[in-house]
Each structure stands twice: as structure tokens, then as C-alpha cells.
Design a protein around this nucleic acid. Structure first.
Lengths: 177, 177
DNA sequence: CGGTAAACGGAGTGGGCCCCCGTTTCCTGG
DNA sequence: CCAGGAAACGGGGGCCCACTCCGTTTACCG
């Protein structure tokens, strides 16, 4: 891949991240191209469909979340670490507005499962540690917690305190009986 | 309001309901007009913005849900009635895809609060009955349950069994300690 | 430093949203 | 029953956006 191509690609992803945070997942692709200082054709060559661009933006966040999972596990005891990390997941979902939802209904299941696998693997360590510590029921899976967290953040859009309240409520049920 | 105007308005709402169920909240307004047998100008006169049309479609579902709340309360004991009704809420949210989400981020708060009030009032009776029966914690509000239910249905889009599982999990926390 | 292949970007196409305005349809009072 | 007027209709046009084509420019390599 040529150097200028890589440079443009990175600029587009960065600008798209900002635009999506500002205007939601249906931000104008032409404006993103303009703000990135490239022609619309360049944007469409790198990202043939809006979905592909959203995926590229989302991939960055996913990797950041995975890093944060490891960092949190190193700093806190198992139970609190899990909750704190889930709050991070929630904040990211809220910051990205409906980005996750747009990707869920996207036509490419392989990307979805890839991110799913990455984030699930990162969360798995936190959950199994919390389970060993007796803070989580044995029939609660990582994916359940992630789905609930995403859903709550989506529903409480724009109100972090509300999201925290609802998440706390939803997580009430994960402790062993 | 003239008879033909009312007829067209009803046709448009009905067709829009089908189109939204098929294609999501961003279905083509022109195709809706075409399928309803009216010109695009007529659609835009009745519904100046897409948001207004979505609201009209949503209003029908809300009224149906309110009716169902009363019917369920009459047929079942308080605790089960609440859960059964929340499942109805979840099924409707799933059937309408992201319609509820689109309305949440809409610019008209008065409509949102109106529906909010209607559905909250309908659910309030179920919740207070369940609370008197000792099935619900005193610090859990109707709005919390509705938000959770909507969020879960949104997240488990297209998989009723999954939605039921997650909702059951989320509702684990509403019982008194 | 020159040639080549890759990448770029402006211009063009098609479709969607929305509005203007001449035409048609409905209601009502005589 | 009918005629006048207001209300509703809908085709056509403007504008914006997603997406593509192709002549031009740029980066890499020998």
C-alpha cells in the first residue's frame, strides 16, 4: 500500500470518527471527505460503502476497549473491575451514538463476529475472575452483559447518570442467589 | 377536515407502518406515497417531516399497548401481568425495529412526553399493583422498566427468544431484597 | 532520473426529499 | 339539485447526497 494512500485512509477514519460523534451514523460522506481534504472518489475507493467506513471507525474503539479491559483487571479486584469496565463499554457506546446499532443490522456478519470475538475475549477474563470471586452467577455469559450494557447506553442516550442508574439496576441480577 | 384528506392520511399511515416494518425507519417517503396512491406533495402536506410521519405510526402502536395493559391487568395476577405486558412492549419494539430509537432522538420533545405519559400511565397501574403484591421493589419506576424493555428488544433485534432471555435477566433485579 | 502502476479528484449520473402552483375535488347554502 | 369557493391534490423542478468514470498526478523502483 502506497504511503499517501495509507495517510489518506487514516485521515478519513479520524475525521469520520469526529463526524459520527457529532451527527450520528448517517453523517454526510461528502462532508467527511471535504473535512479530510480528499475527493469523494478517494473516500469511496477506500470505503466502498458507508458500512465499511463505520466498521473501520468502530474497530478503533473496540481495540481501545480491549486495552482498557486488561488495564482495569490489573488495577482493581475482580467484581469492581468488571463493573467499571462495563461502564467504560457503556460510555463508548453512548459516545458513538447509534454506531453499534447500525453495525448490528449491517450485511457483513463476519466483521460483527470478529469484533464480537475480540471484545468477548477481553471481557471473558474479567467475568471469569469475577465468577471465581463469587460476584457473578454461573449462568451469566459475557455476551449477556455486553448486550445489556450496549442496550442501556443506547436507551439512555446523552445522559450518563441515567445510563449508570439503569446499568446498575440491570446488573442487580447477575449476583449468585 | 375533508373526507378525502382523512382517507389519504389514514392510507399513508397504514402503508408507512408496513414499509417501516419491512425496511426500517429510513424507508423511502416517495415509495410510501406511491404505494398509498398519492403524490409526494400530499404526503408532505400531511406529514411535513419524516419525524411527524413516524410519530403518527407510533401513536397507533402506543394506543394498542395501552389497551393491552388494561386487558392484561384484568386477566392475570399483578406480578405475572406486569411481566407479560412488558413482553408485549418488547415484541412491539422489536416489530417496529428502530422506530422507537428514531423517535427518541427526534427534535419534538412534546410528542415524546405525550406517548411517554400515555404508556407510563398504562404501566403505572400494573406496577403499583405488582408493588402492593410484593413483587416489585419500591425504588423501581415504570419508566425504568419500559426503558430496559425497549433497550433489550432493540439489542436482541430479530430474535424473540433472546429478547425474552435478556429481559428475564434484566428483570431479576426488580424484586424486593 | 525516468517509467510505470497506483492513487487521486473533479465532473457527471441517478435517486430522494421537499416545495411551488395550476388543477381537481369536496362541501354547503340557496 | 347546483354553483361558488375553499380545501386538497399531484406533477414538475430545485437541491443535496451517494456513488462512478476517466484524465491527471504522484509515489515508488530500478
Amino acid at each position: 500500500m502506497r504511503a499517501d494512500a495509507r495517510r489518506n485512509r487514516e485521515r478519513i477514519v479520524a475525521v469520520a470518527g469526529v463526524a459520527i460523534a457529532e451527527q450520528g451514523a448517517d453523517a454526510s460522506l461528502e462532508e467527511i471527505a471535504r473535512r479530510a481534504g480528499v475527493g469523494s472518489a478517494t473516500l469511496h475507493r477506500h470505503f466502498p460503502t458507508r458500512q465499511v467506513l463505520l466498521e473501520a471507525v468502530f474497530r478503533d474503539r473496540v481495540e481501545e476497549l480491549c486495552d482498557r479491559a486488561r488495564a482495569t483487571a490489573a488495577e482493581l479486584p475482580p467484581g469492581p473491575a468488571l463493573v467499571v469496565w462495563l461502564r467504560s463499554v457503556g460510555r463508548h457506546a453512548a459516545a458513538n451514538r447509534g454506531l453499534a446499532a447500525s453495525l448490528m443490522r449491517g450485511a457483513d456478519p463476519s466483521f460483527g463476529s470478529a469484533c464480537h470475538a475480540m471484545i468477548t475475549a477481553a471481557g471473558e477474563e474479567l467475568v471469569s475472575a469475577a465468577r471465581r470471586a463469587g460476584d457473578v452467577r454461573s449462568d451469566v455469559a459475557v455476551v449477556d452483559l455486553l448486550t445489556l450494557t450496549n442496550a442501556v447506553s443506547l436507551a439512555a442516550e446523552g445522559d450518563p447518570a441515567e445510563a449508570d442508574r439503569l446499568l446498575t439496576l440491570a446488573l442487580e441480577g447477575i449476583r449468585p442467589a
